[in-house]
Amino acid sequence: MSPVRLGEVLPDAELIHDRATLEQAIQRLADEIRGDYEGDMPPLFLTVMHGGMPFASQLAFALGERGLDLEFDYLHATRYRGNTSGARLAWLHRPATSLRGRRVLLADDILDEGHTLLAIKRWCEDEGAADVRTAVLAVKIHDRCVEGIEAEYVGVEVPDRYVFGYGMDFQEQGRNLPAIYALKA
């Protein structure tokens, strides 16, 4: 069976949050984050690749506009590898920057069940981070989130459906869509 192309599902997908709504949410998050980090050493801003890249970029610019300096690095850990359900966590890249004694701000696209973000957060703590906080563009509304993880900074909520766009993919497609969509229920 050949893979389904984004163009086959996008016309029937439901627009959940448009670009303007997402941009407003990112501006609000930047205000919240700046207030929590103001006056400290620049936090280590870790983008969770690939999905976190569009959101992290926009959030970093919004924080810069508010005078908050950041030190950048990234990590790539995944449970999906192009699938729609997760498996064991695979580390594809760990940050080159030492986390010891640092305040770390993780930026990711979505908090769904939280397995990946919890593993990443614990890894940061094990590496000696003084504080680890998480900013996500979206949180999926359901009761399956693992214990021990929640995002301190949340842009928008999304329904408990398959969502894509603004970093989130549909079969490795659509990450660059400037809005969030959901497959029809």
Rank of each mutant, 00 (worst) to 15 (best):
R66S: 06
D112L: 13
I110P: 02
M1Q: 13
G7T: 14
G52H: 01
I110S: 05
A96W: 12
T134C: 14
Q27D: 15
N83S: 15
E172R: 15
E113W: 13
Y74G: 00
E71D: 13
L177C: 12
Y153L: 06
T134Q: 01
I110V: 15
R5P: 01
L6W: 11
V163N: 02
H50L: 06
G148K: 10
F55T: 05
A30H: 09
L10I: 09
E8H: 10
Q27V: 14
S2I: 12
I26W: 03
A90N: 10
G167F: 11
D143H: 13
I180R: 09
R102F: 05
D69S: 14
P159N: 15
R144I: 12
A87N: 12
E8F: 12
Q58N: 15
G174E: 02
A56V: 03
D69K: 08
P3K: 11
V9L: 02
R19K: 12
L117T: 10
A135I: 03
L137T: 03
E23W: 06
P54V: 00
R103N: 03
Q173R: 15
C124Q: 04
A60K: 01
Q173A: 14
M53P: 01
V156G: 08
R34F: 14
L44I: 06
A20T: 08
A25Y: 07
G165I: 09
D143E: 08
D18C: 13
G67Y: 04
Y80F: 08
E71C: 10
A182K: 05
I120A: 04
V139F: 06
T84Y: 12
L15Y: 11
T97F: 09
L22F: 05
F164T: 04
A77L: 01
D40Q: 13
L6G: 12
R66Y: 05
S85H: 13
I149Q: 05
L75A: 01
A90G: 05
N176A: 13
M1F: 12
D18Y: 07
R133C: 03
F164Q: 07
K121I: 07
L111V: 14
L63C: 01
W123D: 04
R28W: 08
G167W: 06
G82A: 02
A90S: 09
L177D: 07
Q171F: 15
A119F: 01
E157F: 14
M49W: 04
D143V: 09
S85Q: 15
A107Q: 02
E65M: 04
Y74L: 02
R161C: 04
G64L: 06
N83W: 04
R100N: 04
E150H: 08
L46S: 06
D108C: 13
V156A: 11
A30N: 03
R175W: 15
S57R: 07
V4S: 12
V163F: 02
W91R: 03
A30I: 08
R19S: 09
D126Q: 10
A182I: 07
L29H: 08
T134N: 00
G128C: 00
H76S: 09
D73L: 00
D131F: 09
T47F: 03
L10R: 09
V146H: 09
Y162Q: 01
D126G: 06
V4Q: 10
S98W: 07
Q173W: 14
G82R: 09
R34L: 11
V4F: 08
E125G: 00
L15V: 08
G148I: 07
M168K: 12
M53S: 02
L99T: 01
H76I: 00
E38D: 13
R100L: 04
L46N: 10
